[in-house]
């Protein structure tokens, strides 16, 4: 995908859970090669927003287009284009890491013949070599997350959606993953990520979206982002957002 072309377009997205409005009229786009941070306090709707984009949450209204396709009507095309690392990774507990990845490779292979080699590279990158025989249910939180990251990245998606994907990763692995994401961006992939590790977001992302609660999502202007990026733990006041927002400093 050429740099700058939108990989993801969200128009007028609204979502409510029963009577509680979580997102209302959210619009933004993410271009190829961009990395966008989703920031906001707990319960503001960050995961809901990412869930709608990855096709796991059904929006009440609005349109989402991933690589030009609707993730709800053309699941296959959207899944080929998107790599999702969910906040709660799903693993088949009774399978080994090797068996789990084998299944994913089996499903992805039809579209990408070299996906098996990519798995080996990613296993090495995240320090999971030799863990192929371990049962998924016996993995530590960090190792389980690494498996989920490999599952999300191995098909070289154009849009990488990461919801708290760095939680539980050891520092060397996190560093190598940051490098990997930078490399992917240089090759045209877009990254959309949410985390409470504000320094990590500041390091990876070039702009931000503030999910401030009250159903509003506010794009941060370049100046606001740069100001926040230089001191991400100081809090944030954004004109237009309902009330002021103090970013959650947990894990930062």
């Amino acid at each position: 995908m050429r740099p700058g072309l939108p990989v993801l377009t969200v128009e007028g997205l609204s979502k409510r859970y029963r009577r509680r409005v979580i997102l209302h009229g959210v619009s933004f786009s993410v271009g190829a090669g961009e990395a966008v941070a989703i920031i906001g306090p707990n319960g503001a709707g960050k995961s809901t927003l990412l869930g709608c984009i990855s096709g796991e949450r059904l929006p009440d209204s609005g349109e989402i287009r991933v690589c030009g396709t609707n993730p709800f009507s053309d699941l296959g095309a959207a899944a080929r284009c998107t790599g999702v690392v969910a906040e709660q990774p799903f693993l088949y507990g009774e399978l080994t890491v090797g068996e789990m990845l084998e299944f994913i490779v089996e499903v992805r292979r039809r579209h990408l013949p070299h996906v098996a080699q990519e798995v080996i590279r990613l296993l090495r990158l995240l320090g999971l070599e030799g863990a192929e025989g371990a049962l998924c249910r016996e993995l530590s939180q960090g190792m389980g997350r690494k498996v989920a990251i490999i599952a999300g990245l191995l098909h070289r998606p154009s849009l990488i959606v990461m919801d708290e994907a760095f939680n539980g990763l050891d520092l060397p692995s996190a560093d190598r993953l940051v490098e990997e994401l930078a490399e992917r961006r240089r090759n045209g992939a877009a990254v959309l990520m949410s985390s409470h590790d504000l320094h990590l977001l500041a390091r990876i992302c070039g702009r931000g979206l503030l999910v401030a609660g009250g159903a509003e999502v506010t794009p941060l202007s370049g100046a606001e982002w740069e100001r926040w990026r230089s001191a991400p733990s100081l809090g944030l006041n954004v004109a237009g957002a309902r009330g002021s927002h103090q970013p959650d400093q947990q894990n930062s």
Binding site: G55, L75, G76
Partner: peptide, 14 residues
Amino acid sequence: AADDPFLRRLGVES
């Protein structure tokens, strides 16, 4: 099934 979202993300045909 608990693996619905996972299979969906993989793009497995419904």
